[in-house]
Simulated scan of single mutants.
Amino acid sequence: MASRRNRAANGFAQAHFLRERAIEDTLLTLSAINRQFDVALELGSGDGRFGRELANTPAAAKVGLLIESDLSPALSAQQSGAARLILDEESLPFGDDSLNLVISTLSLHTVNDLPGVLVQIRRALQPDGLFIGTLFGGETLKELRGCLMEAEIEVRGGYGPRIAPFAEGGDLIDLMKRTGFQMPVVDSDRVTVSYEHPLRLMADLRAMAESNILHDRPRKGLNRALLQRMTELYFERFADDEGRITATFEIITLSGWKAHESQQKPLRPGSAKTRLADALGVKEGRFGTANERE
Rank of each mutant, 00 (worst) to 15 (best):
L65W: 10
L71Q: 06
A59H: 01
L85Q: 09
T57K: 05
A82Y: 11
A74G: 06
P93C: 08
L85G: 02
A60L: 07
S72V: 06
S72L: 10
A59V: 07
G64R: 12
E53W: 13
D88W: 02
A77R: 07
S76V: 09
G64A: 11
A74H: 10
G81P: 09
N56C: 07
L54E: 05
E90C: 07
L65C: 12
A59C: 02
L66S: 05
S80F: 03
L65T: 15
Q79Y: 04
G64H: 10
I67R: 06
R52A: 10
Q78K: 13
Q79C: 10
V63S: 01
K62D: 14
E68A: 15
I86N: 04
L54G: 02
I67T: 08
R52C: 10
V63E: 04
L92H: 04
P93H: 09
S69D: 09
E53N: 13
E90M: 11
K62S: 15
S72N: 06
L65F: 02
D70R: 02
S80G: 15
L85C: 07
A55W: 10
S91G: 13
D88T: 11
D70V: 03
R84H: 12
S76H: 00
E53T: 13
V63W: 00
L92Q: 05
S91E: 14
A55I: 05
A55L: 11
L85E: 02
L66H: 12
E89I: 05
R52W: 07
L66I: 14
Q79K: 05
Q79T: 13
I86H: 07
P58A: 04
S76M: 12
S69F: 04
S72F: 08
L66V: 11
D88M: 09
S72G: 12
L54H: 05
N56L: 12
N56R: 14
E53F: 10
A83V: 13
K62P: 04
K62N: 13
L71Y: 00
P58Q: 06
L75P: 00
A77T: 04
G81W: 13
Q79L: 03
A82E: 13
L54Q: 09
E89R: 01
S80K: 08
D88Y: 01
E89S: 15
A61D: 15
A77I: 00
E89Y: 08
P93E: 06
G64Q: 07
S80Q: 11
E68N: 14
L65R: 15
P73L: 08
N56H: 09
P93R: 11
L85K: 10
A60T: 05
S76R: 11
L54V: 12
S80W: 05
S80R: 11
L65V: 15
L71A: 07
R84Y: 01
N56V: 01
A59E: 14
A59L: 03
N56F: 06
D70C: 00
P58H: 03
A55T: 09
R52Y: 08
D88F: 04
R84T: 12
K62E: 10
L85M: 13
A59K: 02
P73D: 13
Q79A: 15
N56Y: 07
D70Q: 01
E68V: 11
I67D: 09
S91W: 04
L66K: 07
D88L: 07
A83W: 14
Q78T: 10
G81A: 11
S80C: 12
T57A: 02
I67E: 03
S76L: 11
L87R: 04
A60Y: 03
A55N: 10
